[in-house]
């Protein structure tokens, strides 16, 4: 369950998010390349066999498609620009009401470079987040979050365990259909009705079992009204600051207020919450080191480019690999 050789899931997330912020500040092919390479190396050498460990592979595929699509669109819809013309695509006349959009035309080197850098930044961002999600055990992450968010975690775990059950049920029911001499591949009434009946029955049994195991047990202490009110006020303030941001008013004060109200609500809720945690993962030196390296990578990414900086950034982004070993495979 808890493997001492792996990092605290929040440390993985701090690393991933730091790299994501760093990518948005980098604006240079070499720096971005270094970050992407480091994230990929760390993930592929440290991920486990669990299903979520594939997040990075999926993330890379999605990012590749996005990159290619972005480049394709950049070539197809050109904007008249000064610069070195690489090649020209015949221009297609668009109707009057689409004035300002150009299909085809000259493709300049400057434009391609700019668009590629932009797409690569998005690519790196996706890779950084996907890397963190394939390294951090989602269940551990939920366990590491404040106790008030526990319910959401349980719902997620139940959902993930029910899916394989569902697949099994479908198989069994289709088999039973064949045994009754049904040649029809899929019948709404004959497949879905038993499936839903079974799913409902399962849900009731699970609910009963959870009830009988003390789920939702709440000792009567603390006032449940105050954290709820604080949360509402916080969300309202957040909404206000977002609207202010969009329409261009000053938003800083309301945002700070919103965040502090939400934190206060979580703090209160957590204090009233009597749940305890079994073998919580500890935040140790290694975790602090990874967090520090994440912050340094953000700082480095903002500096002007030199080759030395690129190498340093790569090494800093590679930090977790020096303090972890490959995860043990659990059966």
């Amino acid at each position: 369950m808890v493997d001492v050789r792996t990092l605290h899931p929040l440390a993985w997330w701090s690393w991933g998010i730091s790299l994501a912020i760093a990518t948005s500040r980098a604006g240079n092919f070499w720096l971005l390349g270094g970050i992407i390479l480091a994230a990929v190396i760390v993930t592929f050498s440290r991920r486990s066999d669990d299903p979520w460990a594939n997040a990075l592979s999926i993330g890379i595929k999605i990012a590749c498609i996005a990159l290619l699509l972005r480049m394709f669109i950049a070539i197809l819809f050109s904007i008249p620009e000064q610069g070195k013309v690489l090649f020209t695509i015949p221009r297609i006349k668009l109707p009057q009401w689409l004035a300002g959009i150009f299909l085809g035309g000259d493709v300049t080197q400057e434009r391609l470079q700019f668009v590629f850098l932009e797409s690569l930044t998005i690519f790196a961002l996706v890779v950084a987040i996907a890397a963190a999600s394939s390294l951090a055990n989602p269940k551990q992450t939920l366990r590491a979050l404040p106790g008030v968010l526990h319910e959401a975690g349980v719902a997620l775990i139940i959902a993930t365990t029910l899916i394989p059950h569902f697949v099994m049920s479908v198989k069994r029911i289709r088999q039973a259909r064949a045994l009754r001499g049904d040649v029809e591949k899929f019948g709404f009434k004959k497949t879905l009705v038993p499936l839903f009946e079974e799913a409902l029955e399962r849900a009731l049994i699970l609910a009963e079992s959870m009830e009988a195991r003390g789920y939702g047990h709440k000792p009567k202490n603390g006032n449940p009204l105050l954290p709820t009110l604080a949360m509402f006020a916080g969300l309202f303030a957040l909404l206000y600051s977002i609207i202010s941001l969009v329409i261009g008013n000053s938003y800083q004060i309301s945002l700070v207020l919103a965040l502090s109200l939400i934190m206060f609500s979580l703090y209160l809720g957590n204090r009233n919450n009597s749940r305890t945690k079994y073998r919580p993962q500890k935040w140790g030196l290694r975790e602090s080191f990874v967090l520090l390296m994440g912050v340094i990578s953000i700082a480095f990414a903002g500096l002007s480019f030199t080759l030395l900086l690129a190498v340093l950034l790569f090494l800093v982004a590679l930090a977790p690999i020096f303090v972890t070993s490959r995860e043990r495979v659990l059966t």
Partner: peptide, 23 residues
């Protein structure tokens, strides 16, 4: 059908965590 978590050890502590038993 009544299991809530997905490993044996987590299943054993599920109830105790809800009750707030000391770690």
């Amino acid at each position: 059908l009544g299991f809530v978590t997905d490993t044996v050890e987590e299943e054993l502590v599920f109830g105790m965590e809800s009750l707030g038993v000391a770690p």
